[in-house]
């Protein structure tokens, strides 16, 4: 589905992403972790062709992003960092707009269903300027899904959501993956959330990959780190993450 090889990005003397390689398989929820400034967003921006890599290769669906950008991006839906939408447009207008951007005719029925799925149907025609941050996050997800992509790249999708919203988002991501066979690459600072939904996790630190594991393997490694003091299983990822990034 996604193959990244030797991906590097330098801003002058500063190396934001350093020789990063990883693979995402179809149908996976792939967790992408790192501290602030670790290079997560830069990597995601390179995957979405927002930033040109200094070196490396990015292949989606067996095709290079640099030569098949249009075909690849038409199969990807994305939320990049905090989604700032058009405050003067409604949710329905956003979906119409992103449908057109994807080369599709707006389908109001489909859009209503999509808004129901993300819990925004009641406010479908309200201006985004009147939405809370959580509602904007939900709308951003709906925009990412409007063209029925096979791969979702979600950068901090639970930002600004209340606990119920976080739970809904978690469930939605899982269902997208399990029921619709979509692949999801998700970055989050909420390690417990990643732990609950991810099949596989990539951890980067200072632009370099420090670990890429399945959740099962990671749990096993964490137990070898003698983390028995931790009372709950959901802290395994956090403990493992801290052990890697604090070195």
């Amino acid at each position: 589905m996604l193959s990244v090889r030797g991906l590097t990005k330098r801003f002058g003397e500063f190396t934001a992403v350093d020789d990063l390689s990883f693979n995402v398989e179809q149908g996976q929820v792939y967790g992408f972790l790192g501290q602030n400034g670790a290079g997560k967003s830069t990597t995601i921006r390179m995957l979405l062709s927002l930033i040109r890599p200094t070196a490396g290769e990015i292949n989606f669906f067996g095709q290079s992003l640099f030569t098949h950008r249009k075909e690849i991006l038409s199969q990807i839906g994305a939320i990049v960092e905090k989604p700032d939408l058009y405050k003067y447009l409604s949710a329905m207008e956003h979906l119409n707009l992103f449908a057109r951007f994807g080369g599709h005719r707006p389908d109001p029925k489909k859009h209503v269903l999509l808004l129901e799925k993300v819990g925004l149907a009641q406010r479908a025609n309200s201006r985004v300027g009147t939405y809370s941050q959580g509602m904007r996050q939900r709308l951003a997800l709906a925009c990412a899904l409007v063209n029925d992509p096979s791969l979702l790249i979600l950068d901090e999708p639970t930002n600004g959501l209340d606990p119920q919203g976080i739970a809904d988002m978690r469930q939605l991501i899982r269902s997208l993956c399990k029921e619709q066979g979509k692949t999801v690459l998700v970055s989050s600072h909420l390690l417990s959330e990643i732990e609950m939904i991810a099949d596989r996790v990539l951890i980067i630190h200072k632009g370099k990959k420090v670990a890429e594991e399945s959740m099962d393997s990671l749990t096993e490694k964490a137990s070898q780190l003698k983390l028995q003091a931790l009372p709950e299983k959901r802290y395994v990822l956090e403990a493992y993450f801290l052990s890697l990034t604090s070195q």
Binding site: L50, E81, L85, F98, F101, G102
Partner: peptide, 10 residues
């Protein structure tokens, strides 16, 4: 912040 959403389109 909407530019990145647009630029990530096909």
């Amino acid at each position: 912040g909407t530019l990145r959403m647009l630029a990530a389109q096909p």
